[in-house]
Design a protein around this nucleic acid. Structure first.
Lengths: 229, 229
DNA sequence: CGTGCAATTGAAAGTACTCAAGCCACGTGG
DNA sequence: CCACGTGGCTTGAGTACTTTCAATTGCACG
């Protein structure tokens, strides 16, 4: 679920609507160990040495940075198939935490990178992955710098919807707080934005963590800033 | 000047204060052509094919995305020595525009990337560069998502100061509008934030485009959110 | 010494935030 | 089986900060 950062083979086009990166098991490249993590468990901290990277089998993980005042910036959510923990230098640049119970493949980051850099093809692919991630981070810059609360939420929901196979219900693995930390908002503002979308009958909340997009076009309009008041 | 994205050799440490990437002339890698650009000239547009990348000899360039409503998000400013236009896929993901008259080296992006991916060492370096850029983009996410106007400006000024050799006066190549577009603010808010810093005697404006940091510590405090009202 | 654009300042409006209270689903224990 | 407590979510009221709109000032240039 959510934004994928899968690594091999890389066949997404940056200019496509849904630019996803696909990857087969990372253990086709290096040997992996299966790990389990309970909800809330931290896989690694910001500034920890980075011996391993991970691929999610089931569950969901958030990656964030903490500020001294306790606020957090969630840079990415990862779901089944997603690979994370590779795109850093010797030390992790953020904290990774399971948001629900997870099953993960863990493998050596060094072995992986060595394998990668030995092959021009693979390194080209990893380069592309990084470029895509960079591109996305910059898209998010626009979001945080220029979009209103409802716009951000609409954009976020659209991405969830894109990343998901089923066209219907969307399950939120993350809490309101996590969403707020991702969108650069407070939890209250997220709630109010959700309420606004509900009132306009653009989305329907079945439960707090399960909803459906009723009017996909209207949601796109809002995300794009073409309000159809 | 400003945030450097130099490519070879890469010896910066991500966890250091000033994480700069150094690079000798890019033409040590592939042959280059000298180009001139006048202030305001666009080097390439968002979504253009990306046959070339550039290295600045003199002058300054801004890299931005435009929104349909005319607003812009400036993702990066580049100055002498900086290399740009490499870290994209087949198409440029932003527009590059000279903000003052520039002298540039232009060279083939393909040749450069091919050369790079042929060498495990070089590709490792480019990987590092990309990882660093990604890290910076995520730092900026925190800025746009969580910081107040004055905090953003303080952070921006500190970065300018870090990137500059001379400890004293800092010249702004970019307009207030450019700064606003970079920080996710309006031009008026940028002015007011500058005025605030002036009033607190933390900076001194010699002219609108030339200033000095009078109280470096206070500026750091503000940037970090430790207001010493 | 005008002209024109960039920068600055002021006043009013808007949006998100803070603080605080209410709601709801769920699990625990009487 | 129900009261109670807990934690996450939602709503309300008031505040703070940024934006918007509208002048005004300042500076470079002809």
């Amino acid at each position: 679920m959510t934004s994928s950062v899968r690594v091999l083979p890389f066949d997404a086009d940056l200019n496509q609507e849904a630019h996803r990166e696909r990857s087969p098991s990372a253990d086709t490249v290096v040997e992996a160990v299966i790990k389990h993590a309970r909800a809330g468990q931290i896989l690694y901290h910001e500034n920890d040495a980075a011996p391993y990277c991970y691929q999610i089998i089931t569950g969901a993980v958030k990656e964030y940075n903490s500020l001294k005042d306790g606020r957090r910036q969630v840079s990415e959510f990862y779901g089944p198939g997603d690979l994370f923990g590779v795109c850093e230098l010797e030390h992790h640049s953020h904290t990774a935490e399971a948001i629900v119970d997870c099953t993960l493949k863990r493998f050596s980051r060094d072995a992986y990178l060595t394998k990668i850099s030995a092959s021009p093809d693979l390194s080209r692919q990893l380069l592309r992955t990084l470029m895509t991630r960079l591109h996305r981070a910059r898209e998010r810059l626009i979001m945080l710098g220029r979009m209103s609360a409802v716009q951000r939420l609409a954009t976020f929901f659209l991405r969830l919807s894109n990343d998901q196979e089923t066209r219907d219900d969307i399950r939120l693995a993350m809490s309101r707080q996590d969403i707020a930390d991702h969108l650069g908002l407070t939890i209250e503002t997220v709630c109010r934005a959700i309420t606004e979308l509900k009132k306009k009958r653009i989305i329907t909340m079945k439960t707090a963590r399960l909803f459906a997009i009723t009017d996909h076009d209207a949601l796109s309009d809002i995300a794009a800033g073409r309000e159809t008041n």
